[in-house]
Computed example of a mutant assay.
Amino acid sequence: MVRLPLSPSEVERGQRLGALLRRARGERSMLDVALDAGVSPETLRKIESGRVATPSFPTIAAIADVLGLSLDAVWSEIDGSARPVARKRLAS
């Protein structure tokens, strides 16, 4: 199977994903998070560093679950086209 080159937007999204996961991991060790998520520490390291810009959905879902992140939160953080949603103020 031939993999097509990633677009610049996919690379940027992968970098945002990696930064989000590093922040969410905080002081927890990469080894502990990876093992709890059922992925290899090398896979988590590559995702966090942006070297794997398009990880599989089950991998991201497992890591997000271990880190206490909702998939909606992950997507809204990494999707470059997302715009903040204005909240309506309730009348008092």
Rank of each mutant, 00 (worst) to 15 (best):
M1C: 02
M1V: 09
V2I: 10
V2S: 06
R3V: 03
L4H: 13
L4M: 09
L4N: 07
P5M: 03
L6E: 14
P8I: 10
P8N: 08
S9E: 15
V11W: 08
V11N: 03
R13K: 11
R16D: 02
R16G: 00
R16V: 03
A19N: 08
A19G: 07
L20T: 01
L21G: 01
R23D: 13
G26V: 00
E27V: 12
R28W: 10
S29M: 02
S29Q: 07
L31V: 14
L31E: 12
V33S: 02
V33E: 03
A34I: 04
A34K: 09
L35E: 04
L35A: 04
L35Q: 06
G38Y: 11
E42G: 14
E42S: 14
E42N: 11
E42K: 08
T43R: 15
T43S: 13
L44I: 07
R45N: 09
K46Q: 15
K46T: 06
I47G: 05
G50I: 05
R51A: 15
R51K: 13
R51Y: 12
A53W: 09
A53M: 08
P55I: 07
S56E: 05
S56K: 08
S56C: 11
T59R: 03
T59V: 15
T59N: 11
T59E: 13
A62F: 07
I63D: 04
V66M: 12
V66L: 14
L67K: 08
L67Q: 06
L67H: 10
S70A: 05
S70V: 12
L71H: 07
V74Y: 06
V74R: 01
V74Q: 00
S76W: 01
G80Q: 03
G80E: 04
S81I: 11
R83M: 05
P84E: 06
P84Y: 09
P84C: 03
R87L: 12
R87D: 14
R89H: 15
R89C: 15
L90E: 07
A91S: 15
S92N: 02
